[in-house]
Design a protein around this nucleic acid. Structure first.
Length: 140
DNA sequence: GCCAACGTTGGC
DNA sequence: GCCAACGTTGGC
């Protein structure tokens, strides 16, 4: 099982909206970046995903999981772009902000810090565990 | 709203 | 294949 982090601007698509989608989840369309797309192509069913609010909030608000493997992005005819579907698993009792992440030495290597603009990024198991703990979850 | 970072595009 | 121009992202 792998771990990831996906960003969304809450005024476009928020965590609450993902929860509202329920079991079916939501197609993670609109990604037009090769690295982000490649990451999605590597995802497996059940992979765990941090849901991060960019622009407004600037915090990891919940945990989602991959519920459909990479498939063509339905919002474009361009065959280059694929995406996965994700669904909400559970919110973090205490959202973990970018500020906290930056202030945590063990997380200074996170893609969120080093590759600020990448919208779909891998998370290391130890980073996952730490952010979960900071967010008030015993295990990820 | 501004601007830096950075990815993509397109002319040569 | 290089590189300048341009567009987008996202923190501040």
């Amino acid at each position: 099982m792998a771990y990831w982090l996906m960003k969304s601007e809450p005024n476009k698509f928020s965590w609450d909206q993902l929860i509202a989608k329920g079991e079916a989840g939501e197609e993670w369309d609109g990604v037009r970046n090769y690295l982000a797309r490649n990451n999605m192509r590597e995802m497996a069913l059940g992979d765990q995903v941090f849901f991060y609010h960019s622009n407004i909030g600037l915090e990891v608000v919940g945990i989602a999981e991959v519920c459909a493997l990479s498939h063509p992005d339905s919002t474009t005819d361009d065959p280059r772009w694929d995406c996965v579907d994700i669904r909400a698993v559970k919110p973090l009792p205490q959202p973990v902000s970018l500020k906290e992440i930056k202030a945590t030495p063990d997380l200074s290597d996170m893609s969120l810090v080093t590759s600020m603009r990448l919208s779909v990024q891998p998370v290391k198991p130890e980073e996952w565990a730490l952010v979960c703990r900071m967010g008030g979850l015993e295990q990820g």
